[in-house]
Amino acid sequence: MANHLTVAAEAEFRPGASWRSQALGFGLKHSVKPLLDVWARLPFDLFPPNVLEHAARLLPAPNGTRWRPVRLEHCRSEYVIGPGVADTPGEGPVILYLHGGAFLTCGINTHRRLVARVSSAADRPALNVGYRQMPHEPVAESVADGLEGLRWLLAQGYRIEDVTIVGDSAGGYLAFAVARAAIDAGLGRPAGVVALSPLLDFDNARRLAHRNADRCQLFSVRALERFEQVTHRLDTRRGVSGRRTCPVNMSLDDMPPSMIQIGSREVLLADAELMASRLVSAGVPCDLTVWDRQVHVFQAAASWVPEARAAIDEIGEFIASLDGRDSTTAPVTRTPVRTSRRRRAASSA
């Protein structure tokens, strides 16, 4: 197993894009992206029902997946046991999963398949948290629900040092925010954080100046600017005052080892690069892997895209490599070096 706990000041590049991944990117660029641009131009705030979450009830989970509902104080969640994973509640390592969807859409149904695959790759169960979202609740409540999910795991007998927090897109924001909240609350330090195509900053300035500002196959900078404006207005309506501290601006020196995966053309690569650099500067191990021409959260397409399966395998190896580390001690400051490159021919998988 490759050592994933070296400090990575530079990204590791995973070359190759299969025809399936390129077809997926083409489809998103000419369907979902134009719709998001229309939404960004509307003179009023529009929040349609979470159709994706309801429709996803009809999609089958990978064969061998088991799950059972968990009711947290303010939201629905579910305990997912991926194919081949032993069901031993409260024992051994576990994953806390926080889904993406721009804090506006998706949920436990849309992400059950991805959570099951990550669970199977890492050989441990996962709590898939259906946290409260905008426009009904501000982002602060999403973080609170993620922390409540962590507390639920601890109440079942899991140890904080055996919990890896995983999230995609907006869930990547929550993964780092919940880890920070757990440390600040005196719960201890989780084993690690894994973020897939994470949104890590509500300030759009760096993205505007980034080389990927006009290259992303899903999000335009205009759509992200509108998202920033909408979140501010919703916070104001709910009486949330003060400046939000996003993960890239949080105190990071006592954070756990982290892994960030992202596509090479994503506009959110600006967030990933900044977060990796700041973690490394704080002395925290971080693996940043950039996947050639892959779309936003391409890992969710594992049933069709070979690179997605390869990426999930790497997530599983990274999480497994965290087992047995002492999360109560401060991270060791190391000289920034590149991670060892794994020669994975993802496009031929």
Rank of each mutant, 00 (worst) to 15 (best):
V295H: 07
L268G: 03
T289Q: 15
V240C: 15
F298P: 04
I312E: 05
A311Q: 08
L268Q: 03
S303I: 01
Q299N: 09
A310V: 13
G239I: 10
I315M: 14
R309I: 11
G324R: 03
E273M: 08
R244N: 02
R243W: 02
I315F: 02
A320F: 00
T245S: 10
G263N: 03
R243M: 11
A300P: 01
V305C: 09
R309T: 14
Q299M: 12
D253H: 08
P285L: 10
R278P: 10
D287Y: 09
T245E: 13
M275I: 13
Q261Y: 01
W291D: 15
P257T: 01
N249R: 08
A272Y: 05
P306G: 12
D253R: 11
V290K: 04
G316I: 04
G316A: 08
V295E: 14
D326Q: 00
M275T: 07
A300L: 11
S321K: 02
D292F: 06
G239M: 10
V295T: 15
A308K: 04
G316R: 08
A276R: 14
M259Q: 11
T289F: 00
E307Q: 13
E307P: 07
D254S: 07
S281C: 08
I319L: 12
R243Q: 15
A311S: 15
A270T: 04
M250Y: 01
A311R: 10
L322G: 04
L252V: 07
E317A: 13
I319F: 08
G316F: 01
P247Q: 01
D271F: 05
A270F: 06
I262C: 14
R238G: 15
P247I: 08
A282G: 11
R278C: 13
R325Y: 01
I312Q: 06
E307T: 07
L269N: 02
D292K: 04
I262G: 03
Q261P: 00
Q299L: 09
L274R: 14
T289P: 00
A270H: 06
R265M: 07
Q294R: 10
D323A: 15
P247F: 00
D313H: 09
A282N: 11
F298W: 12
I312V: 14
I319D: 05
L279Y: 10
I319E: 06
F318W: 04
V297C: 13
V305E: 04
G263R: 02
Q294L: 13
R293S: 13
G263S: 05
L252G: 07
L274M: 14
R238C: 14
R244Q: 12
S241T: 15
W304R: 07
R243Y: 02
H296F: 05
C286E: 08
I260G: 08
E273N: 07
R293I: 05
S303W: 05
A270D: 05
